[in-house]
Amino acid sequence: MADNTCKLAEGTRFSEELFSYLSKFFGFSKTSNIIGALVHPPSFYSIRVNTLKASVEEVYRSLCEKNIETVFHPILDDVLLIKVKGPFEIEVQGKIVVADKKAAESVYVGADLYAPGVISAKGVARSDFVTIVDEKGFPVANGIAMQSEVDILNQRKGLAVKVLRSRYQSASIRCLDEYASGKIYDQNIPAILTSIILEPTPHDVIVDMCAAPGGKTTHLAQLTSNKAKIYAFDNSKSKISKLIENINRLGVRNVSVIFSDSRYLHVDYPSLKADKVLLDPPCSALGVRPKLFEYKSVRDIIACAQYQMQFFKSAVEILKKGGILVYSTCTITPDENEIIVKYALENFPLELDKQILYLGTQGLNIIKGSNLLQRFYPDEHDTPGYFIAKFVKV
């Protein structure tokens, strides 16, 4: 088994330590399937139609007129699905441009490569045909250099490579007129579902504790027709800029954006009392797709879990009795999911509650109430890996 784990970890470019850790909870076969799916994008990208600005039917017609293969989500009535095509073979031709992990994963599914994401472009001249590879040398796309090596590495701005062929191809959602005009937001299905599970109403005071870049915040505004009072907190100034940009683009008018560390909201804002609290804290992001490689350690996962625990005191203190707290992550690790739920139940006046919609599967049976939790597996649900828990304060 150890030899198999080592070989599979090497083949998928995940660390052996991480593979072994996940196998303890999911078993060898399931872990293999999960990691195998994480390497690829889903079959469809989901977009949330911003009904503050447009109807789903209007956006659907508009995308179809652009010959973008689009279908309605069978259950979520404000969601459209855009087909992802591939995989396609990428031949290593021309000069090599090395992209960092984040940039390579975007290029892998059809995005152009911008200068900040370039690690090296040895000998590349403007107009050269190039092959883009990730940090490990895996080819993700072919394209035409729009800048020379000198300009890319010295100026660090602008389009570096125009992609002609990538491993996977889909519509460049953020280049669409519908995106620029605020009619759509690219968001995965479990993330969309998270805001629905919070059950927001126009009369609520809602706190989004880790709000940037604003997908869930703006969805909550949409679900409440711009009428709920929403406080969006984040402690990253760069991310808050993106949050404000999305709020403005989507026509959201009922959100107060506040730069603050949400672990201390109960101290910094003692009069703040919320009907609903959304806690989607920073995590190991092991469920994000596509993931070309991943070398996080178990120590990294435990550090994330310990950080996540620090938000609960504040969340519970600002939540009214009888109020709803939804906790979510874009990772698959039990330490950041079920074990966090166990910690919350043992240390705070919280009870698990049934979620109003289940599109995934129940949580791991390692804590009481696992049937009330919701998990998404990339190999099983064709989504990112994801976790959702709903609490009520008692």
Results as ranks from 00 to 15, higher is better:
residue 12 T to C: 05
residue 13 R to W: 06
residue 24 K to A: 10
residue 26 F to V: 06
residue 30 K to S: 12
residue 34 I to E: 13
residue 37 A to L: 03
residue 40 H to N: 14
residue 57 E to I: 03
residue 64 C to P: 00
residue 74 P to A: 10
residue 80 L to M: 08
residue 81 L to C: 12
residue 95 K to H: 10
residue 98 V to G: 09
residue 124 V to T: 08
residue 129 F to N: 10
residue 135 E to A: 13
residue 154 N to H: 02
residue 155 Q to L: 14
residue 156 R to P: 08
residue 157 K to I: 00
residue 158 G to K: 11
residue 171 A to D: 09
residue 173 I to F: 07
residue 175 C to P: 00
residue 183 K to W: 11
residue 189 I to T: 09
residue 200 P to G: 09
residue 208 D to H: 09
residue 253 R to S: 15
residue 254 N to S: 06
residue 255 V to T: 14
residue 255 V to H: 09
residue 257 V to M: 06
residue 260 S to R: 13
residue 262 S to E: 04
residue 263 R to C: 07
residue 265 L to A: 14
residue 270 P to S: 10
residue 275 D to T: 10
residue 278 L to H: 02
residue 297 S to W: 00
residue 304 C to V: 01
residue 308 Q to L: 05
residue 308 Q to K: 07
residue 316 V to P: 14
residue 316 V to N: 10
residue 319 L to D: 11
residue 321 K to Q: 10
residue 327 Y to W: 05
residue 328 S to K: 04
residue 333 T to M: 01
residue 334 P to I: 02
residue 338 E to W: 04
residue 338 E to M: 06
residue 340 I to S: 05
residue 341 V to K: 10
residue 342 K to Q: 15
residue 347 N to D: 04
residue 353 D to N: 04
residue 357 L to C: 09
residue 376 F to V: 06
residue 381 H to P: 07
residue 385 G to Q: 01
residue 394 V to I: 08
